[in-house]
Design a protein around this nucleic acid. Structure first.
Length: 586
RNA sequence: GGGGUCGUAGCUCAGUCGGUUAGAGCGCCGGCCUGUCACGCCGGAGGCCGCGGGUUCGAGCCCCGUCGACCCCGCCA
């Protein structure tokens, strides 16, 4: 092994061009590939900037080069030479030149990697995560992390130019039992007391507004101890924003150009302003509060068509205040009967009582529900736009059940029949969320967004007598069926805040204990304010074309919330337990 | 907590109806090769078939349990 000494690279492995021909250069990097031809040997040297071919045919360099293995770390000193036209490699940025080795230093040996770095073929994710340091060398992860960097730089530049301040908020903070489960950190100094890691810097950013900081943003880690998904990690990054004297329209007008800029950096041109849809409309038409607008298949209410249907299950559902709704699978008139049965089976698996269907065939109307009457079904096919081409599927039940089911079915059918155009980026503001949601298990109201969200001005007077009907000044930013941001105009009137806590079943006394400092702060001249938080990981993943945010996070956790590389979480020794005044239950 | 998919060589996978010696490609090791660039050619090594139990004359294959990865539901103010 050789010493690096004072050697520094003169160029990166992605830098050399015909202009450099004749120069003496130093490249430092990893052995990417070795092509040993006997009396001549080619090495590809790699760093994060690219790959450069180096070559030698003279002893003793030839002998030294033959001992190199992939992923060893080397220094190559040599002269840049042109390649003859027939040996130019168009696939490499540096492919018009090569370096003729003058001196070769081996800076470090490398064990054989468990998977190839040079070949980008599929490797199981657990293997990638266990050897993340090797996975990070691969082009896919390097590309994703470089994109992520460019986006965060763009975000900081954007906010800076508009006078926003990036201000850090505490990671060790106070547990506020509303919302997601907290990650807790026991206090050594205060036996039996705990810090919580922030689910978001919500209260702090509002206090920054009270503190007169006016325009705040932060690219910040948030922590939620809930189960994971492809787009959910226990620690994730938000672009957190708060603005004083803000209306919803103002927030939108500041965020839309930001999103446009982010996407430009990501290589996608988008148009603003974005569409807007109320929560109620989104749920009715798409069965979701984050509809994917890259395809149609809207949910349609067909209750009127079957108002006096003799078919029992539907008649009963309608009579008891329920609905009959359906959607049309385009081209579904031509799919096989077996395929139709699969759709029905899938709907039932999703929890539908049943799925009715109808379509026109060469032999006339075909349906799973003859009892609903040929005339009515034919009309339903017309009204729904199924015509002779589509397959109409329908289900009855309570509005909530039916929306949810058809929303899920819509997504799965679109996927199954390849109706989603992956090149489209369909943004949508979902607005007018309900302020509150009835938690059946707890038998109380819970905040749909969070307990600091302002009710709409019009509904404010009805907050106590009809809490379930009050809409909030809350909004989500949706892209292609994914929630990439959410925010609200906040309550700035301490009396309204107290009123809301009461509605949530939090007594004045309790509120004082949990949020007392915050309510106090509200009393001292709080400017009206509002903001938003964007899911950075999700945005990067969408732009990178990655199905999971794990692929845009350097060190993510598995679905079981474990870090396979470091093996966290882990046990700690008895002394640590004791210092923290903790004892195992078992 | 529930449902689903997967687990075979270092990696990615195949393995028929349960049948006797478990395969391929890549990688790895050895040899040859003066213009390769996914170099090529010749040869070779490499297996707790995730783990535990069961059924069977016989299990990679069937059954039960368990562990792990992934996807979904619940959960995620």
């Amino acid at each position: 092994m050789d010493l690096l000494g004072d050697l520094y690279r003169t160029h990166t492995c992605g830098q050399l061009r015909p202009d450099h021909v004749g120069q003496e250069v130093v490249l430092l990097g990893w052995v990417h590939r070795v092509r040993d031809m006997g009396a001549v040997i080619f090495l590809d040297i790699r760093d994060r900037y690219g790959v450069t071919q180096v070559v030698t045919e003279a002893e003793p360099l030839l002998g030294q080069a033959k001992k190199l293995k992939t992923e060893m770390v080397v220094a190559v000193l040599g002269q840049v030479a042109p390649r003859s036209p027939e040996t130019v490699n168009d696939k490499l940025d540096t492919g018009q030149v090569e370096v003729r080795i003058g001196e070769l230093r081996v800076l470090n040996d490398a064990r054989r990697p468990p998977f190839g770095i040079a070949d980008e073929s599929f490797v199981a994710e657990d293997t990638r995560l266990r050897y993340r340091y090797l996975d990070l060398r691969r082009q896919r992860m390097q590309k994703n992390l470089m994109l992520r960097h460019r986006l965060t730089m763009g975000i900081r530049r954007y906010f800076d130019e508009l006078g926003f301040l990036e201000i850090e908020t505490p990671i060790l903070t106070k547990s506020t039992p509303e919302g997601a489960r907290d990650y807790l950190v026991p206090s050594r100094v205060h036996p039996g007391e705990f810090f919580a890691l922030p689910q978001s810097p919500q209260i702090f950013k509002q206090i920054l507004m009270i503190g007169g900081l006016d325009r705040y943003f932060q690219i910040v880690k948030c922590f939620r101890d809930e189960d994971l998904r492809a787009d959910r990690q226990p620690e994730f990054t938000q672009v957190d924003v708060e603005i004083s004297f803000a209306s919803q329209a103002l927030v939108f007008s500041l965020i839309e150009p930001l999103i446009a800029e982010i996407f430009t950096v990501g290589g996608i041109e988008i148009t603003t302003p974005f569409r807007t849809m109320t929560y109620a409309e989104a749920v009715a038409r798409y069965g979701s509060d984050k509809p994917d607008l890259r395809f149609g298949m809207e949910i349609q209410d067909l209750g009127a068509v079957f108002a006096d249907t003799p078919f029992g299950p539907v008649r009963e559902a309608l009579a008891s205040g329920g609905v009959l709704r359906g959607l049309v699978v385009p081209g579904g008139a031509k799919i096989s009967r077996a395929e139709v049965d699969k759709i029905v089976a899938e709907a039932i698996e999703m929890g539908a009582g049943g799925l009715l269907w109808a379509r026109q065939t060469d032999k006339g109307l075909a349906t799973s529900a003859k009892a609903m009457g040929e005339a009515a079904l034919t009309r339903a096919l017309e009204v729904s736009g199924a015509g002779t081409d589509g397959l109409l599927v329908m289900t009855a039940g309570t509005e909530a059940q039916v929306s949810k089911l058809l929303g899920a079915l819509r997504l799965s059918l679109a996927k199954r029949f390849n109706l989603v155009d992956p090149t489209r980026f369909e943004f949508l503001w979902v607005v007018d969320f309900p302020l509150l949601d009835w938690a059946e298990d707890e038998q109380r109201w819970v905040a749909m967004h969070h307990p600091f969200t302002a009710p709409s001005d019009a509904d404010l007077p009805r907050m106590t007598e009809a809490p379930g009907e009050v809409t909030a000044k809350a909004y989500d930013l949706v892209l292609n069926g994914s929630e990439i941001g959410g925010g609200s105009i906040r309550i700035h009137d301490p009396e309204v805040q107290r009123q809301l806590f009461r509605l949530l079943g939090i007594s004045d006394e309790d509120a004082k204990l949990r949020f007392g400092f915050f309510i106090d702060a509200l009393e001292y001249g709080t400017p009206p304010h509002g903001g938003i938080a964007l899911g950075l990981d999700r945005i990067v993943a969408l732009l990178a074309g990655e199905p999971s945010i794990r692929d845009v996070i350097a060190f993510p956790k598995t679905a079981a919330a474990v870090d396979l590389m470091s093996d966290a979480p882990s046990t700690v020794d008895a002394r640590q337990w004791k210092e923290l005044h903790l004892k195992p239950l078992a």
